[in-house]
Design a protein around this nucleic acid. Structure first.
Lengths: 357, 357
DNA sequence: TTAATTTCCGTGTGCGCACACGGAAATATT
DNA sequence: AATATTTCCGTGTGCGCACACGGAAATTAA
């Protein structure tokens, strides 16, 4: 490149091996039509001189486009979380597109396993060079991973993980540990003996792994201690506002038999529903903690109805997923398989510094 | 590049303007030797067709090296914080070096203004294409910024800011706001009426702006409320361990007249000294909060002597500073001037996810 | 043994841009 | 008006690599 003395070129390898640069190219790219003797000699010299290709020149000369497909939930008005990973994906693509990368994004409905399957099969049909997928519906995803492996299509999981698969990377948060963080915050914030309510907004079509895992971590925090805290779980299955209100009244309301509930842990981003309830009923002195920097959650945080939000770094999830695939397959770098993102604790005082992306 | 139908090339501009590609190049790069009539025509077509240069081809063809100098405190054994920004700088450079970027890092002693001046003047002497500097000694830095401006050398501030300067970016934390975060955490963790000690480890050679700013933010948090908390400040000027112990005994020890101190806010990374004191004297039930993920601080956090650490994202400070200069001057992108990093709240439960860099 | 096919390899071209060189035209000086 | 100088512009080369093409050599089939 610019420092000719320190950068090994294909022509240096060719000269050393006594062959042409065309032959070196054939060896590097496994194009065949090279004798074993010549091939071994070239490989040895490549290693000796630690040849590193000039990615700029390579991309300029190559006609090849690395086509990446992404399969994520569509955001819409009921699933705002997924706007941020999409934005992260798009920014990452903007940074790397001049290396010959194309990105096609496919969406499925968060609560609709059939749309997940349909879109996944469409993607398999176009045989991309790489895939990013949020495998919320784990069984259906698993079935298709074999096909992807046969087609030699590398896969990165984003936000949800499936253990023991051949994905090259997972990018997301350690959900169980995030529950422990929530527990720590509530434990510190409450007086001795004050009890806690866990609120789970459950989807009936599956994909609740995160919620269960967070609760598990939360409860695990209190296990080893001789804690005198009572912890009660309430599962909310309905989407009807009136029904939700009834359940919350029973769980944390002033009519509740658990009238000493002073801390509430909501295991997903719908914490705004609880905040709304507290506001409506003028319930004070309850510490409320939930997930994700949705606009409505941020409003309640700024107005002291939510005390802490735990951010999953959704933008970074999108960004880092695409960068993992790029670094692995184009830059040929080693990548870490499980890329856990920070478990960010957000308060009214630091929220502004998490909104850049 | 790879998609010839959608990418405007210099040859397209040349054809449209009825000139050669050499002329278009001369216009793009302001090389002169082009008539005004021709120049205006080419510029109009460049804008019409929204020409975007192929950075890959440009770098490959160009012999130019963009030389960046960085001036930061040396880490050593007493200033471990600065290892992380250095690592961030080096990683950023690894990612962009193939675009023809070189990086020379210069160090000054954190408490030695003369070494700062000497190194700064050395840098001016080599006339780099860009400079990253931690302007801890603000007056001395200011004097040299005029020279840099005359030489048309763009400057990025890292970790410390100086207002109203011609730096193209500042990358660091909002220190005052981080004090408010600390206040929030202690306010929640302590019972009503329990008092708080602020501990400032002061350097006698200057560079205490961060410490003062953090205290200011902390106190500001409690101002608007009818808080019944007593907040006491103790400044520690000495480096002698015995002296430090005496001062801490007076401030927070069991012999202290302020025996009801239950929360301690240390305004920099030397929080380990207070943690050590608490451990040594078997003082329990004190909530301790300080800054930075130094190894010793992390140990005390894991062992429950420190309750919260506030991370300044030092690695990202280095990384983003270099990327700001790169994006501004090489990629020709607009950049944000004040790039405040997140104010990360670290507990024993989430520390592991902040150690990747 | 001869002809057909495959393997092997070198050579040439082009990706989009940077930029040096030199001839022609325009301008300034004598 | 003749000469010298400057401006203007087109042309050619090369950056490091990808990869197609074709001639020579080796191998296989008849």
């Amino acid at each position: 490149m610019n420092n000719n003395l320190s950068r090994v070129k294909i022509s240096d390898i060719a000269q050393r091996a006594g062959v042409s640069t065309g032959t070196v190219d054939r060896v590097i790219h496994n194009r065949g039509e090279v004798s074993k003797k010549t091939r071994d000699k070239v490989l040895r010299i490549l290693e000796e001189l630690n040849y590193q290709p000039d990615i700029l020149a390579s991309t300029l000369a190559s006609k090849k486009v690395f086509r990446i497909a992404a399969l994520i939930p569509e955001a819409g008005t009921t699933n705002l979380f997924w706007n941020a990973p999409l934005a992260g994906l798009q920014e990452a693509w903007r940074e790397i597109k001049h290396f010959g990368v194309s990105l096609d994004t496919f969406f499925f409905k968060h609560d609709d396993v059939l749309s997940f399957e349909k879109q996944f099969d469409r993607i398999i049909g176009i045989e991309p060079d790489g895939l990013l997928v949020s495998p919320i519906f784990a069984d259906q995803a698993k079935k298709r991973l074999f096909t992807l492996k046969d087609l030699d299509i590398p896969v990165v999981f984003i936000n949800s993980n499936i253990e023991d698969q051949q994905n090259i990377a997972f990018v997301g948060q350690d959900t169980r540990q995030s529950g422990m963080v929530a527990a720590r915050l509530l434990d510190y914030s409450l007086n001795s003996g004050e009890s806690i309510s866990i609120i789970n907004f459950i989807s009936e079509t599956g994909g609740n792994h995160h919620i269960l895992s967070r609760e598990e971590g939360f409860r695990y925090y209190f296990e080893p201690t001789t804690s005198n805290r009572q912890i009660n779980t309430t599962n909310i299955y309905t989407q009807e506002e009136q029904k939700i209100e009834e359940v919350l009244t029973k769980a944390i309301g002033t009519d509740s038999p658990r009238a000493i509930t002073k801390g509430v842990f909501v295991t997903n981003s719908r914490v705004f529903k609880v905040a709304n309830y507290l506001k409506k009923h003028n319930i004070q002195n309850v510490i409320l903690i939930g997930y994700d920097l949705l606009e409505c959650n941020i409003d309640y945080l700024r107005n002291n109805y939510i005390d802490f939000l735990i951010s999953q770094n959704p933008w970074e999830q999108g960004y880092k997923s695409l960068m993992a695939l790029f670094n692995s397959r184009i830059m040929k770098k080693e990548i870490v398989k499980n890329q856990f993102l920070p478990i960010d604790i957000i308060t009214k005082e630091n929220i502004d510094y998490y909104l850049n992306n």
